[in-house]
Nucleic acid binder design. Structure first.
Lengths: 242, 242
DNA sequence: GGAATAGTGTCTTTAAGACATTATGCC
DNA sequence: GGCATAATGTCTTAAAGACACTATTCC
């Protein structure tokens, strides 16, 4: 600000995506094996540089979502997670990443035929176990993304984004159990989700296939925030108190 | 990705700050009258370009905090709010802003002597009333910052960041009432904050000056998350349900 | 009928909402 | 004593936790 013709340092912008979904009642994240340096061969979150000077950040996120995961803008939830800009996070220079969190229902193998065929769904547990090496600071971004999802399940109707257009209450419970990693009492869960008015609404004549009694189908309701919130039982990780 | 030597478009990075504090039991935000184009003469959030190629984002935020508000890194809360990158948000070109939320106790007029003497504390109500024009997309950033503060008061011990090193329970209640904009019952508030173990702990021999009975003093406790959370009464703005 | 899953009901316990009352300082 | 603010207590009510039970389908 004080020098004669000081110019601010330019940076490069990437958009990275934490794409979460449920597979076999387990939380999974989409990872891609990098084809180029740096971190060639290492797993990374899908993402890439801003396409052009005028591209909006959300637009770029949707573009990457389509290119790298074959996911269209409909029927998925997308929100900003934050910005990651440590000076040394990318060996190529000053690259700042806008991270987005996407939540999608389980789709029919969305990966195989797409542009980036090196994409693979990895269980969240495994991705953060330490056994898997992630490129850049993507482990931190992934951790933050999962934390965000866990928090938002408490106060928002976000859980329905993990489900298809219609779903059963058991499936919804599956979402909560998988994301939070704790078992829930089915009867109390039923009472709770039914009592929050507008969270889920009955859909169609209701029916489903399994071994037992058919379950009613529901759609997401108009309500986006949950009052009172869902209560997440504190798992083993309750650092404070006893 | 497909062309021969495609290079990603560089962008400029700014760091903008939503600095909140309490003044006369009202939520205030620090605004600065811009001295240069664009938006010269218009009120804006404090902030500025990244200082140099190697500067970390949080470091830049702390630097701006010191330069523009005279606030040191101690005894204030700072967290990232998000990134704002609409292509047309800055007439100078592609400028992307990393927004940070800072919460500080009321300090002895921190503004007057500092570098930027055009800084002024403005009540949040007034800043968002529409009467005040804010530069760039700073109205949106401010709205998001206040929303974030409101949410975090529910589940975190953030409220103590508005207070000095020691405070009375009444002062803490003031924080909640000012940020949420709703009156709270003092007796239930006492019961609540005392029951959340580790939220606040007695400090010193306890005493304070007013007209009436001296109040006990407390310090922030080790607890950072509140279980169960503080309940925010839904003000007039309860779009869903009745 | 038996297995499997869906859905409902009841009792208990925790904690919030709505109050009144007592306590301790200053003038 | 009178005033002002701090602090505590009680009753009610809402909602979560912990259970047992009935219902509907397929074999």
């Amino acid at each position: 600000m004080s020098h004669d013709h000081w110019v601010p340092p330019p940076v490069l912008l990437t958009v990275d995506l934490v794409i979460l979904t449920l597979r076999e009642s387990c939380l999974h994240v989409l990872l891609i094996e990098r084809g180029i340096e740096p971190y060639q061969g290492t797993l990374a979150l899908p993402g890439g540089f801003l396409g052009h000077e005028k591209e909006d950040l959300v637009t770029a996120a949707h573009r990457e979502l389509a290119e790298e995961a074959g996911l269209g803008p409909d029927q998925l939830h997308l929100e900003q997670l934050g910005v990651y800009g440590a000076p040394d996070r990318d060996p190529r220079g000053r690259v700042v990443s806008a991270a987005y969190l996407a939540i999608a229902p389980r789709l029919p193998e969305p990966v195989a035929g797409t542009d980036a065929s090196r994409a693979c769904w990895t269980s969240a547990e495994q991705a953060l176990s330490g056994d898997v090496q992630l490129a850049f600071d993507h482990e931190q971004i992934l951790t933050d993304g999962i934390d965000r999802a866990r928090e938002k399940l408490e106060r928002s109707a976000l859980a329905t984004a993990f489900c298809g257009p219609t779903f059963t209450i058991s499936e919804l419970q599956d979402v909560y159990e998988a994301v939070w990693g704790v078992p829930l009492d089915a009867r109390n869960f039923y009472r709770k989700v039914q009592s929050v008015d507008g969270f889920i609404v009955p859909a169609g004549p209701s029916r489903k296939t399994d071994g037992g009694r058919p379950a009613r189908l529901f759609r997401p309701g108009p309500r986006t925030t949950l009052h009172p919130p869902m209560i997440r039982p504190l798992s083993q990780a309750d650092r404070e108190t006893a």
